[in-house]
Computed example of a mutant assay.
Amino acid sequence: MRLANLAGRAVLLVDGGAVDVERLTDGKFGPDIRSVLDNWAVFRAEVADVAIDRAERTPYGPADLGTPVPEPRQIFAVGLNYADHAAESNVPAPEFPLIFTKFQSSLAGPATPVSLPSEGVDFEAELVVVIGKETYQVAESDAWSCVAGLTVGQDLSERAVQGRGPVPQFSLGKSFPGFSPCGPAVVSLDEVPHPDDLAIRGWIGDEVLQESRTKELIFSVPELVAYLSGVCTLYPGDLIFTGTPAGVGMGRVPQRFLRPGETLMTEIEGLGRLEIPLEQGCPTSA
């Protein structure tokens, strides 16, 4: 199952187009995404008994899709969660997950243009976890049962703002408009045979920027869900950006940041692709 956001309505992406959830379920779910994720298990059971192959399809393109979870209650992100990225950042691998937040206003769709506020915007290809039920103090062994699905994300970062002050301010530097693109859909776990080991790749044109596998995460998805739920109550639709592998622009010699006119591509095996056009924006006043 691939749950997506088409013109603000919950849809399922299938061969030949998008199926509207509200019409498919005779109004039991939808049109908003929250109504689906808040009742994820019931929705999955309901749709299993519906003949989707006979449902009406709406054609769409990547630019027609919005962020698949437009109103998460919480957005968590994890820093330095690949050993090679920690090494290129000249810091030791963390003993515990390094957690920060991103703000809802930074969310964007899988092909939404992003205006660059400076010449120091960096790229971070990431696997994003979508929580599927209210969760508190879950054991690592049970953590996958709390996940609705996975999607592709980018944790774009304005490095000057991120680095200001006596300590870095991760959240602000990573929350400009469009700095949290996700999509194209929330892919349910039954469609991901090996969710702990997915190829992840980011590139611009012929230039490969990042390439790794999610098995290289220092803290796996179950570890992150267990760790976060040990402190916070997690809610359906919450997002967890799980971290990025090596290759970020700040860690390169010479450094390589995003430029207007480029298209940033990000792909994760079995989940889909982001195609983010980059535009010249107004200089940041932050």
Rank of each mutant, 00 (worst) to 15 (best):
Arg2Gln: 15
Ala10Ile: 09
Asp15Glu: 15
Gly17Tyr: 05
Val21Lys: 09
Glu22Asp: 11
Gly27Ile: 14
Phe29Lys: 12
Leu37Pro: 02
Val50Glu: 04
Ile52Ala: 04
Arg54Ile: 06
Pro70Cys: 12
Pro72Cys: 03
Ala77Leu: 07
Ala77Thr: 10
Val78Ala: 02
Val91Met: 10
Pro97Ser: 07
Lys102Thr: 06
Lys102Pro: 08
Ser106Pro: 05
Ala108Ile: 10
Ser115Pro: 01
Leu116Gln: 01
Ser118Thr: 10
Val121Trp: 02
Asp122Ser: 10
Phe123Trp: 13
Ala125Asn: 04
Val130His: 01
Gly132His: 10
Glu134Val: 14
Tyr136Cys: 09
Ala139Thr: 04
Glu140Asn: 00
Glu140Gly: 00
Cys146Tyr: 10
Gly149Ile: 08
Thr151Tyr: 09
Gly153Pro: 05
Gln154Tyr: 08
Asp155Gln: 07
Ser157Val: 08
Val161Tyr: 12
Val161Phe: 09
Arg164Asp: 15
Val167Lys: 13
Phe170Pro: 07
Gly173Val: 03
Ser175Thr: 09
Pro181Arg: 08
Val187Asn: 05
Asp190Glu: 14
Glu191Gly: 13
Val192Glu: 05
Ala199Asp: 11
Ile204Pro: 11
Glu207Pro: 10
Leu209Glu: 01
Ser212Gln: 13
Glu216Gln: 13
Leu217Gly: 00
Ile218Tyr: 00
Ile218Leu: 13
Phe219Ala: 00
Ala226Ser: 14
Ala226Pro: 00
Ser229Gly: 03
Ser229Ala: 06
Thr233Val: 12
Met250Asp: 07
Gly261Tyr: 06
Leu264Tyr: 00
Thr266His: 07
Glu267Gly: 07
Pro277Cys: 12
Pro277Met: 13
Pro277Glu: 05
Cys282Gly: 09
Thr284Arg: 12
Ser285Tyr: 11
